[in-house]
Every structure is written in structure tokens, then in C-alpha cells.
Design a protein around this nucleic acid. Structure first.
Lengths: 212, 212
DNA sequence: ACGCCTACTACACAAGCGTGTAGCTTCCTT
DNA sequence: AAGGAAGCTACACGCTTGTGTAGTAGGCGT
């Protein structure tokens, strides 16, 4: 797992700038992060940032592009360990996102990082395909639609990590927090919030007010 | 339901500025929104913004404060209609958040708007209390912890509305999108993703790697 | 040894920002 | 009617920003 903190000096200046940008964009957001701040973090002049990436917007695009490639690689390595990933999905997410988590969260919230989201949906569809095989009654909705919403929900804890940590009383990034979180998620996913009867009721009510 | 669009002229200048700020902060984000832009939207001079609110940061705090009061009022009115709110939680969220949805989403993601999140958790706890009464096996985790994660998940679709709309192929804010979304959520909430057996397996695996 | 491209720095510039100040109107109080 | 606070505007200041330009150091092919 590549770390931002370690061995920044070993990288080329271009890579150092990109890593610094990833960190600054993630910590401060795109607007509050400055070219000069990124340059300073990378240990180069601000002019070099422009020399290598052209503009601030292009730098962000380079970051996005880099992450798409990186995450694909990390994912291939991580998803192959089903025991670890299934036992603690939260730990998996942290492992997959790596040190780029703050950046990715911001990108997702702003509606960017489409490839990442879509790929997660696709993974969810695969998972649902297996689950649907053992399901008695037909699902209410399209498999992709269910995978989409599930994906969004899976990202919720990471996106709202501040609120969740505060409300749980423990940092979800800590080992204890991750464990608690996994326990909770396991409980929620193995116990339906709605009984078949109430679900049927609500579904009927929903169809009654169905739009054209 | 108060609308930002309508009757801006009827409000006092101070209120117009606040409404304009709510909209600009929501649409553009706090950094990209400018005092001058807010003033122009409100139809006043930029100096008046400073006169009434002192600083940009203070203006944001005034917006937060206003929303806490407003939402409490709106919630009391909306939550009393259990048929509507339970039939379509998404429509409920949109109704409750009102035109301030973009602002609130940004506030939540940035870790602000704690009162809003905490109140949602509390409502979730109440709901879970009823559900737990009819539950056979004991929950894996604390009720508040489950309410916290459920709350985060409930907010996910709203926060990631761009991705969700794109992946569903229909705007979740539209009547058709809201209906589809409600159907999906109903399905997910009434069918556990994990069977009791696999859940037990994963729980065992989780306990095996439990941190100190 | 020469030329040249690439990496890199230093510095300047215009624009937009939040903020400060001075002054004008309006309306309410006494 | 006088006075004064409150609502409101116009304008300027200083700072930071992204970007542009000029120039230097260094390695590499010829």
C-alpha cells in the first residue's frame, strides 16, 4: 500500500506534486487548497506545478485519472481476499481507498469520480446476482437499481465519518471504531427493518400514489 | 413550505440576504460563493451584507442557526403524517429539507449541522425501540449505534444524488425517480442482504480479529 | 564542445476576494 | 421639529489567488 507520508523524497517532482495535491485537495477541498501550498508541501516552486500540469483544474484531473488507475490495481489485489473483505467491509473500504480517502469522498460528493462509483455499483450487481439466486420472492426493483442504492449506502459511513464517529463516541478510523461499525452493519444487514407485512402495506400505499 | 424562489421581495433585506446566502452556499459551496454575489442575488449592496452579519463566516453561522430553528418546525409538521412519511421516506426527506437541501448536504458532509444529524439519530432510536420489541434475537449492538449508521445510510442517497440519479437513469428529485427510489429502499429494508448463517459466520470471524 | 530540450526557479501581473470607512437616507422617538 | 439610531450605498484598501514571463541549471545526443 502506497503511503503519502513516507518517502516523498524518493518520488519524482511530478509525482510529489500530485501526491501533495491529493493530500491538500482532500484536507482542504479544491478551492481552499492553493497552488503555492501544494508546491510547498511537495518541496518545489509554484512555477513547477504549472510547468508540469498547466493549471489547477488540469492538476485535479490528473489526480482523478491517477486514482482511477491506482484504485483499479488496489481493488484487484484487495477483493481477492474474501475472508478479510467480507468480515469487515469498513476495513476493506479503508484499505481500498487508502490514504486518498478524503480526496475521494470530496470527489464523490461533488458528483465526480464517476468511474469509481460505477465500478462499485457493478461489483454490487455481481454480489446481488448471487444473492438473488437464493431468494424466494421476486425483488421489487431492477438489480442495478438496488445495487446503486446499496452502493450509496455503503459509502455513507465514510462520507459522514465525522458525524458517525461523534455519535458512536469512537473514531470509525480506529480499530475499535471499525470493529463496532462492522458489528452494527452486520446486524443491520442480517435483520430486515421492515416485516413482510408492513413492507407489503407500504408498497401498496406507494403504488396508490404512483406518478404517471 | 417556504420557497426561496418566490416572494423574495416581500422579505426584509436581512432575510433576503440570508435566503440568498443559503442558495449560493448550497449551489456553489462556501468558498466559491461570494459576498458580492449573495448581495446581488438579494438585490442589495455588498456593504449591507457586512452591516447585517459582520463577516462571511458569521453569515454562514446565521444560516445554520436559522435552519436549525426552521427544520425543527418543519419536522414537527411533517413527521405527524405517518402515512405519507412511511410510504415514501425519500419524499419525506425532500419535504423536510425543503429548498435548503443543497446547503444542508454540504453542511453535513463538512461535519457541521450536528443538531440536525443528532436529531435524526434520536428519531431513528425511537423507531428502533418499537422494532426491537418485536425482534426475537438480541441485536448485535447498541441501539444508538444502529440508529447512527442507519441515519447515515438514509442520508446517502440525498448526498450522492448526482451519482444515484445517473446510475438509475432518472433524477431522484423527479416524481418517477422518487418512486423508483422508494421501491428500491422498501425492497432493501424488507429483505436482509445476509442470511442468519452467513451473518453468524462473519460475526464469528469478526470476533476472532477483535481489537483490544 | 556545442546545441538543445527538459526540469526548475524567481518574479511580476491582473483579477477577485473579504473587509474597512465614510456618508447618505429614512423613520421613529421625545 | 429635532435628534439619533438603523438601514443602506459607494468606494477604496490590502491581500491572496491563478496565471504569465523570463531566465537559470543540467543532462544528453551530435
Amino acid at each position: 500500500m502506497a503511503s503519502i507520508e513516507a518517502d516523498l523524497e524518493d518520488l519524482t517532482a511530478r509525482a510529489r506534486i500530485r501526491e501533495a495535491a491529493l493530500r491538500q485537495f482532500g484536507e482542504l477541498g479544491f478551492e481552499r487548497a492553493t497552488i503555492r501550498g501544494i508546491a510547498e508541501t511537495a518541496g518545489v516552486s509554484s512555477g513547477l506545478v504549472r510547468h508540469h500540469f498547466g493549471s489547477k483544474e488540469a492538476l485535479r484531473e490528473a489526480c482523478d485519472e491517477f486514482l482511477v488507475k491506482t484504485l483499479r490495481r488496489v481493488r484487484d489485489a484487495t477483493f481477492d481476499d474474501p475472508m478479510l473483505t467480507r468480515a469487515n467491509p469498513v476495513a476493506m473500504a479503508q484499505a481500498a481507498f487508502g490514504p486518498y480517502q478524503p480526496y475521494l469522498v470530496r470527489a464523490l460528493v461533488e458528483g465526480r469520480a464517476e468511474p469509481l462509483f460505477d465500478e462499485m455499483v457493478r461489483a454490487g450487481e455481481q454480489w446481488l446476482a448471487e444473492a438473488d439466486a437464493e431468494r424466494a420472492d421476486p425483488p421489487f426493483a431492477d438489480r442495478k437499481a438496488r445495487a446503486t442504492v446499496s452502493t450509496a449506502m455503503a459509502l455513507a459511513v465514510t462520507i459522514l465519518h465525522r458525524h458517525v464517529s461523534r455519535s458512536l463516541g469512537v473514531d470509525v478510523a480506529s480499530p475499535e471504531g471499525a470493529h463496532l461499525l462492522a458489528t452494527v452493519i452486520l446486524d443491520l444487514h442480517s435483520h430486515p427493518a421492515l416485516s413482510p407485512e408492513t413492507a407489503a402495506e407500504m408498497r401498496a400505499a406507494l403504488e396508490r400514489i404512483r406518478p404517471a
